[in-house]
Write a protein that binds this DNA or RNA. Structure first.
Lengths: 224, 224
DNA sequence: ATTCAGTCTGAATAGTTGTTCACTTCTTCA
DNA sequence: TGAAGAAGTGAACAACTATTCAGACTGAAT
């Protein structure tokens, strides 16, 4: 007698897996990584604690997958925004703005993915996440350099520094309060974008123009 | 019968306290905050675990004080370097370089103080540490702005962004490897300093000059 | 020398959560 | 419908460390 999974069962299993992952994501978005505990996540996903382990070998694995997923979404958004820009400098500006807006609209999640203390080892997936996004930024910077818009530089280091600046300024503990106010939020995004562009060598006047340009399509997301 | 602490005893108590704090600092410098555990720290300080609690009410308090101490040293170094500079722009460059050099020469410690996951709540002292150093940077930026060397800007946000950039680029998981090589280390310091200065609006050409100037007195520390 | 407050010790305790597993429930197929 | 394998359950377990505390020790005062 051979037991074979029905299509229906396969679908249900997949749905459960994704429900657990979603529950974890919701928990992280609401309360940071600290809130991603097996028991609460299981409750949110309408399963028992033990069931989580039928889908993920460990909490570390669950969180790693969560990080990977969020990171992938982020990368997609960055690429889309940058690719839609008319030139390398605009693309860079768009990439930076996209990161800023995303990070701000999901502050707790971003902080959790990036830097929040977690009790299990997720350094590998965090590293991958950073590497991917930093790499994308580096490529955009490089394109602008090759186009002659920016001075030659260590693009990898520059990209990493930009990421750090964005995160610390927007979701770190010193991030300005009241970023729920759409106006302040937009200002913050523009300020850090300007800072980032100047950092890699865009002239001040030109940078200001790029910032305004890049903020326009992002308005919907920012809500202002 | 009145028991009164002899001067000798007072001194011994103070010495013990500082030995415990030093042990914690050594542990953090060697293995990050994860290595700051009560039992090992007690061993390093040549006391029993329980004794630690006669000097610090909790691990959180111990680590908080450690953070405060390191942060104070850091701030002192920044001020000294900046005050010795000939003008506001040089002072800013000196401050940035100092942070970079310090952070690099004590990478594990810096990471532990700033961002490493800890199992107890030390957000308050970390926040204070960041606020102090970011505040100092903001003052230096502001001075340069008032001197007409930089465009007007949100100096607090800029300072925070710079801090983030420095840390992520130099001690974050994407920091370049082989920073033990003095040459590479110096290059990294110069690169991020240049990036930081341009970010706040220093013109590229001028920024390069300032970087070289600021790196010179730091050479001893960098060891190159 | 004796007393005793103050100090130190370190084994035992306690609280927190990830993980397991014996058992129940569900699903497939003859 | 019943047998057997797969999936789900949740209470019990395990591991890790901060913290405690009853008793040992130190050294100041008489």
């Amino acid at each position: 007698m051979v037991y074979r999974r029905t299509h229906q069962v396969v679908k249900r299993l997949a749905a459960r897996r994704s429900a657990i992952l979603s529950a974890a994501r919701d928990a992280a978005a609401a309360g940071g990584m600290a809130a991603v505990q097996i028991a609460p996540v299981a409750v949110r996903a309408n399963v028992a604690a033990g069931t989580v382990y039928r889908y993920f070998p460990s909490k570390a694995e669950l969180i790693s997958e969560l990080i990977t997923e969020v990171s992938r979404d982020e990368l997609t958004a960055i690429r889309r925004a940058a690719d839609a820009a008319p030139g390398p400098s605009s693309a860079l500006a768009a990439a930076v703005t996209t990161i800023a807006v995303h990070v701000l609209s999901q502050r707790k999640l971003a902080w959790g993915i990036l830097a929040e203390p977690v009790d299990v080892d997720v350094t590998a997936s965090r590293l991958a996440s950073r590497r991917d996004i930093s790499g994308e930024l580096a490529m955009r910077i490089d394109a602008a350099v090759r186009a002659g818009h920016l001075p030659a530089q260590d693009t990898a280091l520059a990209a990493t520094a930009l990421l750090g600046a964005l995160h610390e300024a927007l979701v770190g503990p010193l991030a300005p309060a009241n970023l729920d106010d759409p106006i302040k939020l937009r200002d913050a995004v523009q300020t850090v974008t300007l800072l980032a562009l100047r950092a890699v060598g865009v002239m001040d006047a030109r940078a200001r123009g790029l910032v305004v340009q890049a903020t326009t399509p992002a308005k919907a997301l920012v809500g202002a």
